[in-house]
């Protein structure tokens, strides 16, 4: 009945067409939002060489003058060019957002992955620290740091970055726990892979996708947080940022009534930037989660 020795090959079996490219799966929305973020970043980087008015020079336009050709975003209450303010302001907003998230990921990501992988006492201590950080009043921490250590880009970034450590670390830890349980990690250990190799080759590539989605979301949050600090006048001293600009334009009800554009343009750009970051992050997560689900 049974053949004694049939070939075991199944060479022709993999005939499924390759799935659509990642770029296509991410969709138009992702590329539009990424494009917008890229544009904002490029403008911020090129601000010194762009033909822009000096953002600090007053009376470029009339007081609260509306948008017109050559003064595309209008002027604020002291006649400064709102477009120039917005572009120059983006430099600190983006920089603070970026550094803050970098700190959050460097510290929270590393510690979280290590805690999730090694478990034990280290994990218990780390989890306790994360919970403590999360329950610490954020604003007070920021005020403490900036008033005690100085209202510089570095310290403002640090104060926001510290707040990012716990949420980032907890996600990193949770994701690591999921993958550390998977059998491919056991298999790697059996092959003789060191902990370092397992963390780098098996865990990290899996954790990095949900983490990068969080990075984009987090950067949006950090930019808004900087805005909040600026609004409370505890962000970068004398520095231009979107938050500062919105505070300047929006702190007087009369100015807001007479020339809302001075506040609305930076608010709009801030909003679109954060929205784009969030949307892009969400798409990344969805596409890669869906790929996981196909398994």
């Amino acid at each position: 009945m049974a053949d004694t020795h049939e070939p075991v090959t199944e060479l022709e079996a993999v005939d499924a067409p390759p799935p659509p490219s990642i770029a296509k799966q991410l969709g138009l929305g992702f590329w539009l939002s990424s494009g917008f973020v890229a544009l904002v970043v490029v403008l911020a980087l090129l601000a010194p060489v762009l033909p822009l008015a000096d953002p600090n020079e007053t009376a470029i336009g009339g007081r609260l003058e509306g948008p017109r050709s050559g003064l595309w975003f209008g002027a604020d209450s002291t006649g400064r060019d709102v477009l120039s303010l917005t572009i120059w302001g983006s430099r600190i907003s983006l920089l603070v957002g970026f550094i803050a998230i970098l700190i959050g990921f460097a510290v929270g990501g590393t510690v979280g992955i290590a805690a999730g992988y090694f478990r034990g006492v280290f994990d218990k201590i780390v989890s306790f620290v994360f919970v403590t950080l999360l329950s610490f009043p954020a604003l007070i921490l920021a005020i403490l740091i900036t008033t005690l250590l100085g209202r510089t880009v570095a310290w403002v970034s640090v104060s926001i970055g510290i707040l990012a450590i716990a949420p980032v670390g907890r996600l990193a830890r949770a994701q690591t726990l999921v993958f550390a349980e998977r059998e491919f990690v056991t298999a790697a250990r059996l092959l003789g892979a060191s902990d370092r190799r397992i963390l780098l080759k098996e865990i990290l590539p899996n954790v990095v996708i949900p983490m990068s989605a969080l990075a984009l979301l987090g950067m949006g949050i950090a930019i808004v947080a900087e805005g909040t600090l600026a609004f409370l006048a505890i962000s970068v001293e004398d520095g231009l940022s979107w938050g500062r600009q919105i505070q300047d334009a929006g702190s007087s009800a009369r100015n807001l009534q007479n020339g809302p554009h001075a506040a609305l343009f930076p608010i709009g750009v801030l909003f679109l930037t954060v929205l784009s970051l969030n949307y892009a992050g969400d798409r990344i997560r969805e596409v890669f989660d869906a790929k996981e689900l196909q398994l």
Partner: peptide, 10 residues
Amino acid sequence: GTRLSPIPGS
């Protein structure tokens, strides 16, 4: 040890 007759392919 009876050799099985698998269904080839997927």
